[in-house]
Every structure is written in C-alpha cells, then in structure tokens.
C-alpha cells in the first residue's frame, strides 16, 4: 500500500464545490438528452408533415387533370373533370389516412399505457 507521503502535493478536495460542479454537469447532460429527444421527435413530426402534405395536392391535381384529359377525348366536359376532382381528393385523403393510421395506433397504445398507469396508482 502507498503511504500518504508518496501522494503528489495537491490542494485538498473541496467536496462541497465538487458536488456542486458534478450536479451542474449532470443537469447539463440531462438537459442535452431531453433536447436531443425533443429534436428527434420534431424531426419525425416534420417527416410526417412532409409525407402527408403533398398527398392531397397530387390527388386533386391528378384526378382533375385526368378527368379533364378524358373530357377532351370523349367530349363530356365538364363532368369527368368534376368526378375526377372528387375521386382524386378522396384518393389523396385515403393515402393520408393510410400513412397516418400507424401513428394513430401508436398514440392509442401510448394513451392506453397512460390510462393503465393512472389506474394502477389509484
């Protein structure tokens, strides 16, 4: 074993200051973790937004455009364009619904877990 004499000459450790600094560093680390989590969630939310935003536009434009082209070809203006507009809008909504259904299921599961937690605490 070493004797105390061999230890290098260092200032005595100020335990109160050390604890304080340790707490500060830990708080900063936890805050970083929370911020990272928040930015990850924001990233996914933005991803979902990008995914569904364009779906409606494309549905309506393709539906109306296709209907218009058929109208020009068959001479039935403007009925197929109106029909195409409606069907295209519905198709866009259907795609949005399909893309967001999995998130709905996820949120429902989270809600159910929360409800179970609350029931347990009572």
């Amino acid at each position: 074993m070493f004797s105390e004499d061999f230890l290098p000459d260092i200032a005595p450790i100020d335990e109160v200051a050390l604890d304080k600094r340790l707490a500060e560093v830990r708080a900063a680390r936890d805050a970083d973790a929370i911020r990272a989590e928040a930015s990850r969630t924001a990233g996914t939310a933005m991803g979902i937004g990008f995914r569904i935003g364009i779906e409606l536009v494309v549905g309506v434009v393709i539906g109306a455009g296709g209907g218009y082209a058929l109208d020009r070809w068959l001479g039935t203006a403007p009925w197929l364009m109106i029909l195409g507009l409606i069907v295209g809008f519905a198709a866009g909504l259907r795609n949005v619904f399909r893309l967001t259904a999995e998130y709905g299921a996820k949120w429902d599961a989270a809600d159910a877990a929360d409800a179970a937690d609350r029931a347990e605490k009572k």
């Binding site: 494309v58 393709i62 519905a90 198709a91 259907r94 795609n95």
Partner: peptide, 13 residues
C-alpha cells in the same frame, strides 16, 4: 375507383 387512383398516384406523390 378511389383505392385504384390512390394506388396509382403513389409514384407521383
């Protein structure tokens, strides 16, 4: 028809 259109607009969107 809605399902068919929604399927075929996928590559476009």
């Amino acid at each position: 028809p809605i399902e068919i259109v929604s399927y075929f607009i996928r590559p476009i969107s």
